[in-house]
Simulated assay, not measured.
Amino acid sequence: MSINEDDVKNDSDNDLGDDYDYQPIAEDAAEDDDVDSLDSTSKSEEICGVKRIADLMVEDIWNLEFRTEDEACQFYNAYSCWHGFVMRKDDVVRDNQGTIISRQLVCNKEGWRNMRYLDLDDRSREAKSLTRTKCPARLRVKLDYGCGRWKVSFFVESHNHDLTPPQFAHLTYETRSMWSHCFLRDKFFGYIRTTSQCEGINSLIRFYVNRKNTLIDFMHNLDRALKEYRNNELIADFKSQCSEPVMITSLEVYERSASCYFTRNIFKKIRNEIQRVGVLNIKVLSTTLDKVKFSVTALGDLAKDRRVEVDRGKNLFSCSCKLFESRGISYSHVFCAMKFENILEFPDSLIYKRWTKNAKNEFISTEMPVNDDVERVLNF
């Protein structure tokens, strides 16, 4: 496809002068936080009196303004999703303080693979398929110091490749719900990420077992490895049950309560979260008879706004980060709300039994089962 002259205007970023440092940064994929659904983006635009993405003309895009760089990225990502291509972050311009003042967003087919990677004599595997076509489509936004908003300084609508039809454009985003981390935030995985648990066990067994072992050696060495694995677990249980950690945070009431309930390793993670309360700000958003909603932000980073809801009647807590649901430990946002509410006791709703010192009591008994068949018991 050819580029229409009406789609391209002169790029004013070249007039920044010597006070700015131009740094091209290629980012091959948009981050998860930059991905918003088309529907939510469209609704917000209609509320603001702006046309839906499907109805935007070239002139409309030239007149767009954004409050932040991220907002511009979210818009172009939704725009690309609707029109059947994938957005990629590209060049940035920074000022003397290193602050980004201009950002370019491109089609993921922008650019071309360097020829030196196409003709290699010592290639060990087949080259990847070519996907880039020097596509000219792009959007550049620039910070206007006068009004403090990000304005469009360069826009090319045309592509030089076929686009995905609108009826298929959202299939990739619908299937993301099956694997993307942002859709699994409220699913419990117990700190297991991908295959880390298997890799940890393999690393231990590999110390005892190698490919030169005979079958008998393999069985003996494997048994030794399992004994050490269980012994390490036994030592960890002993330290949790028979020792008391030193209190180091200013919120000792929460720290000491956590040390009574949780194993040593989990306690250390919770203590780290208690320490982070000191850098958090909290404000009340709404209050009803039994419930109160808070906004929790980090000092100096107001962009990361977490919403915490406290049910005073049922003594329940929920946070928009969903980290308790996925990992089973209380996070700093909840501790901040507990401090604000002057809650001194560790609520039962925040004690995940899997991480407690007594988690194994229902499965392991120290008493010998009563059985008349002594030989059967001894054999067992």
Rank of each mutant, 00 (worst) to 15 (best):
P165W: 02
M247G: 05
D186I: 08
V86M: 11
D373Y: 03
T164L: 11
N114T: 06
K353D: 11
L16T: 04
S124G: 09
K43S: 11
R230P: 00
C81V: 13
G328I: 00
K268S: 08
D301S: 12
V284R: 08
N272G: 14
E252Y: 06
T287P: 02
L184R: 12
H159D: 02
Q74G: 08
L280I: 08
F218R: 09
N202H: 06
M178L: 15
N210W: 07
N4V: 11
S42W: 06
T68V: 05
Y191E: 05
E273L: 02
Y331I: 14
V310R: 06
L378H: 04
Q197E: 07
K89C: 00
F335R: 02
P245I: 00
V106F: 00
V292Y: 01
Y20L: 08
K314M: 15
Y76M: 09
G111E: 00
L143H: 08
E71W: 03
L285W: 02
F335S: 03
Y191D: 10
Y208F: 15
S129Y: 05
I266L: 07
I282R: 03
W82N: 12
V106T: 06
L378Q: 06
W355F: 05
E367L: 13
S203Y: 05
D6S: 10
S80P: 02
I47F: 10
N4F: 11
C242M: 13
S177G: 06
V310I: 14
S196C: 13
I270E: 01
R185L: 15
I329K: 02
I266P: 01
Y117D: 11
D28T: 00
F363N: 07
R230M: 09
H181Q: 14
K43W: 10
F363A: 09
V284W: 01
L163G: 03
R185D: 10
V152F: 00
I364M: 07
D55F: 05
S259D: 04
D311G: 06
Y117I: 04
F340M: 13
S257D: 13
R376T: 12
D217P: 00
Y254P: 03
F324Q: 04
N63V: 04
M87S: 05
C198V: 14
R138K: 15
Y331H: 14
M87K: 06
F346H: 04
F168K: 10
N281T: 07
